[in-house]
Amino acid sequence: MRSFDQVGRLLKLVPYLSGHPGITIQETATAFGVAPATILKDLQVLQFCGLPGGLPDDLFEVDIDAAREDGEIWVGNTEVLARPMTLRADEATTLLVALRALDELGSKAAATAAAKLSSALGKGPEAIEVTVTSGDARVRANLVTAIEERRVVIITHRGREGIGSVAVEPARLRVSDGATYLDAWSRPRAAWRSFRLDRITACEPTNECCGEHSGLDQATGQWFADATTQLTLQVTEAAAWLRDHYPISGVESVGDELRITLPIGSRDWAIALLLRLGSAVTFVADIQIADAAAAEARAALAHYTQSGTSS
C-alpha cells in the first residue's frame, strides 16, 4: 500500500472515529472496505501523530489496549481533524454519476442529494450524461408513483406471445446490461417476474394495495450471480474489451492472445456472444457451444444464399 492511500484513509478515519466513540474495529473495517488488521495498523500510526511539539497533549489519544483487547476504538484530542477532508475529484465524480443513474430511473431523493453535493463541492457532473432508461416516460412515471404508493397496477406488455395485460405489484426498476426492467409480483402467476420497460406500453393504477412477498433479490439476481456454467475462450486483442465488460472469473495471456473464463447466464447468451465476436475468438473450450454457434451461423447463412441478397 502506498503512504498516500493510508494518509487518505486516516484523514477520514480520525473524524469518523471521533463521531462514533467506542465503535468496533470490525464495523470500522466494514465501513472502510479494508481488513480489521489494517485499521489496527492505522491506529498504531495515529497514536504518534498530532500537533508538533512532542508533548503528550499534542498527540492524538488512541486507546490501543482497548482496541487490541476489546475490539473497541476510543480516540481523543482530535479536534484539529474534526471534519473530514472534502471529496477528491474522482470520489465526487463516481458518487455524483451513481446518483445521476438513480435520478434517471426516477428517484427524486437522488436528484436532490446530488444537487446538495454539487453545490457544496462547487462541482457537478455536467460533463457526464447518463441515460440508463428506456421505455415510455409516462409509463415510467406511473410505475414510480405506484411503487412509492405500494399500489397494484395493470400493465400492458408486449411479450413473445403477443400483447397481454396483467395485474402486478411493482417493486422496483432495475437496469441490467443497458436495459431497464420492472421487477414485480405477478398476481396471476403468484411469483416474481421481470418485465422489460420498453415492452410495457401502458400502466393503469388501481386502488388495490400491494402485499408482502419475499425473495425478490433471489428471483431477479444479477444474471451472472447465479450462473453456474463457465465458458473458457481464447480471443485476440480485438476482443480484449471482454475483460472489462463482463464479470469474468479468470484471464491469462497466451502469446498475443487472452484466455478468458466467464460465467454464462444461459446457453443462448453464450452462442450469441460467439456469433458477435466472430474471428476474434480463436478457441472455445466447450465444443458443444462452439458447434451450436456454428450451426446457428450456417442457419443464418442460408438466408443469404436462398434470397440472393449476398453480394
Binding site: A89, L102, A127, I128, A171, L173, R174, D177, D244, H245
Partner: peptide
Amino acid sequence: LEAFCPRLEPANHLELWRQ
C-alpha cells in the same frame, strides 16, 4: 429496500476524461 436499482458499466479512466 430501494425502488431503484440501476447498474453502471465500467467507465475506464472516467476521472481523466472528466478532467
